Computed example of a mutant assay.
Amino acid sequence: MESDDILLSNLDDSGILRLTLNDARRRNALSEAMLHRLGDAFAKAGSDPKVRVVVLAANGPAYCAGHDLKELTAGRAAADGGRAYFARIMALCSGVMQAIVTCPKPVIAEVSGIATAAGCQLVASCDLAIAADTAQFSTPGVHIGLFCSTPMVALSRNVTNKHAMEMLLTGDMIGADRAADMGLVNRAVAPETLRETTLAMAQKIASKSSLTLATGKRAFYEQREMTLPAAYDHASAVMVDNMLARDAKEGIGAFIEKRAPQWQDC
């Protein structure tokens, strides 16, 4: 295990990388330091062939409280009132969220506590999310005069417009069951089974061809931004390339021959 003050990292024998936010004192806020650590961690995970799936978990009662407001407030002391600093932090945070989406490895959020503002954005940016049924979610910026505009990007790509706008306009906290109904998380489970449930899903995904998973994840996010005809053209081209891959030939052959496939991730 590699560890530091705010982020823990553990890669198991099945290729599941567990990243754990470990700044409970600050409610695992996305401080500048935390954002840098996360960005580095996802960059390394994406290029490490030993990593097959990433689980993003957290220690403490809060999964992630969003940006560190004390840190942001301190930035106002600059001559420009904080404009350059705020722009840099928002770009850094947006880069981390996009790094999760563009990471070729599937990313699962394991949400054990409250996820608010950019913390809710963090959950929404992950490919999958399993939450304890005691977890809660909100985009509460409107309570402090700051609309959650960047969390809105990830949120609006996970739930319907009206659900997203309700969260953004009211700032209300919602429970895990409601979040599951809305599609913000995949499922809500008892806290004592959260890690077990997340691990089971991670292991199931890790058993697949990593080439196939990377191909599919990339195509999913690419086609989502296209028109319907363009999406079908793009997906068809991806399928052709995928069919020519060694693992697709092996997987189809194994299915026909009724045997377990032997992946080589190529």
Results as ranks from 00 to 15, higher is better:
Phe255Gln: 03
Asp133Phe: 13
Ala245Phe: 01
Asp181Lys: 10
Asp48Met: 09
Asp4His: 02
Thr116Pro: 00
Lys249Asp: 14
Cys126Ser: 15
Val185Asp: 06
Val123Lys: 15
Asp177Pro: 01
Gly75Ser: 03
Ser138Lys: 12
Met167Asp: 06
Val107Pro: 11
Glu110Gly: 00
Arg26Met: 09
Asp177Gly: 04
His163Ala: 13
Tyr221Ile: 07
Ala254Lys: 10
Cys103Thr: 11
Leu194Lys: 08
Leu128Ala: 13
Ala124Trp: 00
Ala132Met: 01
Met239Glu: 07
Glu166Val: 07
Arg83Val: 09
Ser210Trp: 00
Gln136Asn: 02
Arg224Asn: 10
Asp181Ala: 13
Leu184Asn: 02
Arg37His: 03
Leu30Asp: 00
Met1Trp: 05
Ala65Lys: 05
Ala109Cys: 02
Val55Cys: 12
Gly175Ser: 10
Asp12Asn: 15
Ala24Ser: 14
Tyr232His: 13
Gly82Gln: 02
Gly171Met: 11
Met173Glu: 13
Gly171Thr: 12
Val96Asn: 03
Ala214Leu: 08
Arg195Thr: 15
Ala115Leu: 06
Lys50Glu: 11
Glu32Gln: 06
Ser210Val: 11
Pro49Asn: 13
Cys103Leu: 10
Ala91Val: 07
Tyr63Lys: 08
Ala180Pro: 07
Thr197Arg: 14
Ile174Trp: 03
His234Phe: 14
Ala29Gln: 00
His36Ala: 13
Gly46Pro: 04
Glu192Gln: 09
Ala245Glu: 09
